[in-house]
Design a protein around this nucleic acid. Structure first.
Lengths: 257, 257
DNA sequence: GATTGCATATCGTTG
DNA sequence: CAACGATGTGCAATC
């Protein structure tokens, strides 16, 4: 069946498969192929996948995905911007190649037999709205510093040390420096090490510096290391409020200056 | 069209969409729906996606993917093991829910109108064979230590320090300790910091300890920090040879003991 | 264009 | 089951 928005065909011949892929690429459509195929990849690594039935997705932006019937991650893929070519062999087999220039990577799919092939022109203007990132925590703390503790005053965000950027640098009510390390999910031992490294730049500070790990929760080993190092933990859930209106955010920003 | 391996339908009614999703779930098939839909997610974070045409994939292992017509990553998803339920509303709209228990996460898709719906029973026994990982580098170095430098002798792999595991610990021909940090791709500043941390445990060693970053290449800033810290860089590409025969590897292992 | 660091990261391995 | 580290991580923001 064919109309302007999509085309699909079941049990296509090799010729038909070739033609529909060509057409889909020309129209910059999203192409779906369910087929028995083999896959080779060469680039940052190298891989090979023996014959089996998988879903192939080619997107108009050059993204290329091969999905087996398990896992969230594609078994092979190419990123946006990759260039696709399709060839038909004498025996009717279809070869689809996707090439990326930098870094040089090549994905080759040999389609033995397609079960269904289709392409779609997707109308989709909306972007995903997300909340609950580390950045949302940061904004919350800058707007309401008392969440960390009474009298906490942020000085800067993204303060650079020789060991990377500190998320929030501030002072407590006694004027002691506080280094905050934010994590939007359960903090592990590596988060504590990160905080420990930031503090190295301040080890000569006379007033003493407090290191605080801010996260919804912390692993057992991480807490042990934290306490052994004289660091602190502050439990804080990342705010998950989706912004309904962008002007509100702007007003808030202006009024808070 | 219907047979044992797959079913597909174009411009299905709400009832038909519901029925095919039900059937696909029951048969533990891979379900594909191209439709206009809205998506909500709540769990580790929260997100909302307004109406638009996307590809929905439900895999028999519970993996759930929603793909827009751009990017490699799905715009929303649920991991393997999630449980799917489908409902039909009075107005013919379809609600698909995927729930994960731990952590608690819920994905809700409201299908306004499906353009095509299909399901497939995929025959696929092959696993992906990959080469070019950090582990391949490690094996290469343990088998042929001279690749690092003449006279290098590995002592242990995965040596534990207070700052994490060292990839390979060894000695040079003069008996000085060498700490190797392996990276399968271009090493950045964080790799140098990691190596720096490992060496802290050895800073009292009388003979002096050498820290060596082993990677195919290194960023400019990373090289600067490396040299400032008196560390070394050894260029090594991860071996990309796909193993043809597992016995060969075993033989090699036995003969090298 | 190169580099850095977050992510609903996902996924395998280990304790 | 929890936790830790690698990944062809992908991706956006920043330089």
């Amino acid at each position: 069946m064919t109309n302007r928005r999509f085309t699909s065909l079941e049990n296509p011949t090799g010729e038909q498969t070739y033609k529909i892929i060509e057409e889909g690429l020309r129209k910059r459509a999203m192409i779906l192929i369910f087929s028995c195929c083999r896959v080779c990849y060469y680039g940052r690594a190298r891989s090979r996948l023996g014959p089996g039935e998988r879903l192939i997705i080619i997107k108009p932006d050059g993204s290329f995905l091969i999905h087996q019937d398990r896992k969230v991650e594609p078994v092979n893929w190419q990123p946006p911007g990759s260039k696709v070519r399709v060839k038909i062999e004498d025996d009717g087999k279809i070869l689809v190649e996707s090439i990326r220039r930098k870094p040089a990577e090549k994905l080759t799919v040999e389609i033995e037999r397609a079960h269904t092939i289709s392409y779609y022109l997707a109308r989709d203007i909306h972007e995903l709205e997300v909340a609950g990132h580390e950045e949302d925590m940061r904004q919350l703390i800058l707007e309401s510093p008392d969440i960390i503790e009474k009298g906490f005053k942020p000085i800067t965000r993204e303060y650079q040390t020789s060991n990377g950027f500190i998320d929030i640098l501030g002072k407590d009510e006694n004027g002691s420096l506080m280094v905050l390390e934010l994590k939007s999910r359960r903090a592990g031992i590596s988060a504590v090490r990160q905080l420990k490294r930031y503090l190295e730049d301040f080890k000569d500070d006379k007033h003493g510096v407090r290191g605080v790990l801010v996260a919804p929760s912390i692993t057992h080993d991480a807490r042990e290391l934290l306490e052994a190092e004289g660091l602190e933990f502050k439990s804080l859930e990342p705010p998950q409020e989706l912004k309904k209106d962008h002007r509100m955010t702007l007003d808030k920003f202006i009024s808070s200056r």
